[in-house]
Design a protein around this nucleic acid. Sequence first.
DNA 1: ACCTGAACACCGTTCAAGT
DNA 2: ACCTGAACACCGTTCAAGT
Lengths: 238, 238
Amino acid sequence: MYRVWLSIMKKSGSDGRTRERLSREAIAGGAVALADAEGLEAVTIRRLAQDHGVSPMALYWHFKDKDQLLDGIADRLFNDVDLPPVSTEPWPQQLRAVLQALLAALRPHPAVAGLVTSRILTSEAGLNIAERTLSHLRQAGFSPEQAAEIGSYLLGAVVTLVTCEPGQRHGEDDEAHEDAIRVKAASLGALSPRRYPNIIASSGALAACASPDAYYSLGLDMLITGVSGIATEAEAAS
Amino acid sequence: MYRVWLSIMKKSGSDGRTRERLSREAIAGGAVALADAEGLEAVTIRRLAQDHGVSPMALYWHFKDKDQLLDGIADRLFNDVDLPPVSTEPWPQQLRAVLQALLAALRPHPAVAGLVTSRILTSEAGLNIAERTLSHLRQAGFSPEQAAEIGSYLLGAVVTLVTCEPGQRHGEDDEAHEDAIRVKAASLGALSPRRYPNIIASSGALAACASPDAYYSLGLDMLITGVSGIATEAEAAS
DNA sequence: ACCTGAACACCGTTCAAGT
DNA sequence: ACCTGAACACCGTTCAAGT
């Protein structure tokens, strides 16, 4: 599928000498596709340049250094977020919808999801997500300071949901991935039943997620329930 | 402070030719201290070897490759966790105490905290933490499958709390860090008030955490409240 | 404005060899 | 058992130069 992406980008077949003009977007897009296929450690200036049919130094025209390239990847993910319109619904539902939108954008790209945590406030699109999150937290009655802390945590927690999904793949092909899951479940199941009875009972579910959709839905519920809980506490205390 | 660690390790002064025998523990300890001082990107096989007064290849006797070295760092953090004894308290308090113990071990080492997420089930000490977490979740009435998903998330969320603490330093010295915070607060404060009113209101708190203790306490409350909430939901549904 | 070639300092890692 | 030296393939990045 990475090869498909490549050929689209190059706009002509395997013999195609002609290639698209390089751009920040094309490079970041290629980086995401490469990370999806082979993991973040495969995303290298030299490798990206090679796949674009260009010299490594060409990328330095578009990005000051590799860190800015990673910023570009994060920015691309934030731009994939389809923020729900503000409505008259109660804040918990609206906040949940915002987090769910972020989640939906990150789920297809677990290998690069971790990049966004530290970059929300340095990305144009990320700022919009943060602003919406803070506004719903203010609706809940939190102070600007509390909203900042809780908001930072919530956005990070969405990333955590994605990167902690049991059996999350890390850029191997499908068969190798299934093998790894089977091996992991077996090794957990072979632990001492006296010392680790609960790990053994959960070994299958720890090695792979039976229903990712249910997992993510439960995760969002936990987040919103948690915020609602401390919101009412704070309200009762004031 | 990293220099202090170095001199202790070498057991003699600046002229000391004699050094401790190398060991997995000494190497992992040095790696943590180095990451604390200069960030995870400074943790390099060659740099560690140099600081230990040894050739880079010496480390390969103790660790198969760099990934195993990172495993060793995570293992060291898990061993710092002082797990509370099982008691007769209700499960939410006990679960909170377990998460708090993990949090206490990770807080001093934000640069390497992220390493633990994927390594809990491959570390001896990590398995104990996971087992305790799962056992309290089973007490709460969750199935082994639910416990696996929720437990994975909870342990990851503790890491998230540490790495998402607003203004979390990343291995700079103190003055540079305070400068960075001031710059960040100022740049957030200079955003468009029409588009980002809430970010501006929270700009100070987004750039740096006023009271980390309060932040972490609130974070643990959110986690426990969230789990409790979906636990009673699950109970009510059954 | 956009890209290249050569070069530099740095990685992780292998392998044969030393004690 | 524990460590070294030389070598290899790979990084990110700079700088001067080409079009």
